[in-house]
Simulated scan of single mutants.
Amino acid sequence: MSDDMLRLLPWTTPDGKPCYLSAASDHSRLSLLADDVEAAQLDSGEQVLDGARAVLGDTKAGERAVRFALTRATESLEDVLRIAVSRGERIEAGET
Rank of each mutant, 00 (worst) to 15 (best):
residue 1 M to E: 08
residue 1 M to P: 06
residue 2 S to H: 15
residue 2 S to C: 02
residue 4 D to N: 08
residue 5 M to G: 01
residue 5 M to H: 12
residue 6 L to N: 09
residue 9 L to A: 07
residue 13 T to R: 13
residue 16 G to T: 01
residue 19 C to P: 03
residue 20 Y to H: 14
residue 22 S to I: 08
residue 23 A to R: 09
residue 24 A to V: 09
residue 24 A to L: 08
residue 24 A to K: 07
residue 25 S to F: 07
residue 26 D to Q: 13
residue 27 H to Y: 04
residue 29 R to S: 11
residue 31 S to M: 08
residue 31 S to L: 03
residue 32 L to P: 03
residue 33 L to H: 12
residue 34 A to S: 15
residue 34 A to L: 04
residue 36 D to E: 09
residue 39 A to S: 10
residue 40 A to L: 12
residue 40 A to R: 13
residue 41 Q to R: 02
residue 41 Q to E: 03
residue 42 L to E: 08
residue 42 L to F: 01
residue 43 D to F: 02
residue 46 E to Q: 13
residue 50 D to L: 04
residue 50 D to R: 12
residue 51 G to Q: 11
residue 51 G to S: 12
residue 54 A to F: 10
residue 56 L to C: 11
residue 57 G to E: 06
residue 59 T to E: 13
residue 59 T to V: 01
residue 64 R to Q: 03
residue 66 V to Q: 14
residue 67 R to Y: 01
residue 67 R to I: 05
residue 68 F to W: 05
residue 70 L to R: 15
residue 71 T to I: 01
residue 73 A to F: 10
residue 73 A to P: 04
residue 74 T to W: 02
residue 74 T to H: 05
residue 74 T to L: 12
residue 77 L to T: 03
residue 79 D to C: 04
residue 80 V to Q: 04
residue 84 A to M: 13
residue 87 R to T: 03
residue 88 G to T: 04
residue 90 R to C: 02
residue 90 R to K: 10
residue 91 I to V: 15
residue 92 E to D: 14
residue 93 A to F: 01
residue 93 A to G: 01
residue 94 G to S: 14
residue 94 G to T: 05
residue 95 E to Y: 05
residue 95 E to R: 14
residue 96 T to S: 09
